[in-house]
Design a protein around this nucleic acid. Sequence first.
DNA 1: CGTGTCGTTGAGCGCTTTCAACCCTGGTGG
DNA 2: CCACCAGGGTTGAAAGCGCTCAACGACACG
Lengths: 242, 242
Amino acid sequence: MNYSPVSPAQLQDTMARLNYFEGWDKDQLARLLPGAKQLSLEKREALATKGDRIEALFIVISGQIRLFIPLSNGAERVISLVERGESFGEPCIIRDEPCPYNAIAGKDSHVLAIDTLIYRRELKQSPLLAEHTLNLVSQRLLDTLRDIEICAQPSSLQRVAHYLIHLQPAGATPEQDFRLPALKRDIAAKIGLSQETFSRMLAFMAQQGFIRFTGSQVQVDDWTRLQRLASAGCPMEVIGKN
Amino acid sequence: MNYSPVSPAQLQDTMARLNYFEGWDKDQLARLLPGAKQLSLEKREALATKGDRIEALFIVISGQIRLFIPLSNGAERVISLVERGESFGEPCIIRDEPCPYNAIAGKDSHVLAIDTLIYRRELKQSPLLAEHTLNLVSQRLLDTLRDIEICAQPSSLQRVAHYLIHLQPAGATPEQDFRLPALKRDIAAKIGLSQETFSRMLAFMAQQGFIRFTGSQVQVDDWTRLQRLASAGCPMEVIGKN
DNA sequence: CGTGTCGTTGAGCGCTTTCAACCCTGGTGG
DNA sequence: CCACCAGGGTTGAAAGCGCTCAACGACACG
């Protein structure tokens, strides 16, 4: 992990371009600037380790950061895949608790690091920032509960069905194809399946005519049956076409 | 669900006694009061349903509220068991999203309901309340991530081991026995196991000399081996005593 | 003494994992 | 241009773990 030499002016410019700071007060941004640094990470490089005291709030400028909990069998449970403009680390900074996950770069990445102390000071002094952060953390909690719901599905087929359904953003037309937002391996690790099982379930759904897919491009042909599958869940053999 | 007829004075008194409002500004509490009602629920009575727009922030006065996600096979995944002085519902109020879980009374219960609109208004106007809530939601997110970590453990034995370890509160002496904080059935549903499997794993751990238990009273005899089990995870047959 | 709730125990089956080999794609260098 | 390799993904076979179903036991309560 390298500190990239970036002038404050450049840094401010970078920040202004990030979704994360959209609609922020200009002064606020300026007050955070002295605590900001830009980091460069190569693919697979670690940014934080479970149990660490985190020393900064992280916002992804480019690339992707994988947050995951390492498991005893060598596998991992992916918590989140943080993309450009998204952040992580707020909860443990706010509560001053150890980091609950590992954070490593999924690709070569650039990350904005905002010093914990400066962030906390600003949080105390700026009600707007506090409200903004409250919104953010609340949303994150809701998202996490959704993930739990997916993982709690009794069969792997239903897990995949739920995942596909919840993938669809609010205002999208059905019939429209989309791409999986990450490597299949990572998606599998996020919904609590082995890569192989995820692959098999996708194949099965395709074979049954629910979906079509090539690579990470997916097209759902029958949303209603997919819904039904997600909320009914029959054994794999007995699925009729009616 | 009945609205209990309670005078504002009584209500204020009740609120003042709840942990939830500990250290609050007196004026703040007074401003929330007009939006507060007291509800009475019998065991098994529903307070909210997944998908609802929640019309109030809920704080448990007595009894217990089970938050859970219903599953297609009739089972449920318990998200949280809300006890006296604890609250739930903040995230969906703040984000104005549908309730992500069912909430039903686990015992006969009394619940304080604070009207959404009044709560939101106060949240906007009072930085202190916002900060307090930010702390709360952050903690809840961290707790939820811990739950995910437990559920992600590859074997059911490890899940139980992790659960027992994380049960132990910060400043407790080892060697001291404690009681399970809920029905075994609910605990099982929280860590993603069937009641039967949970029972079997406890029995196995007792038989191996890790723990002793009668009813919900548990005594851990060998923390180190328990730790080792949680983070190493060998197949059940091959556990040595060294 | 019946009834309801909670928990334990047993037997059997099926799904998911694991381990393995294999395919496909893109990039790289001779 | 092609051989080679690495990374990502698919597919097959085998085995074990956890679930389901069912019966039973303990306990409290009216």
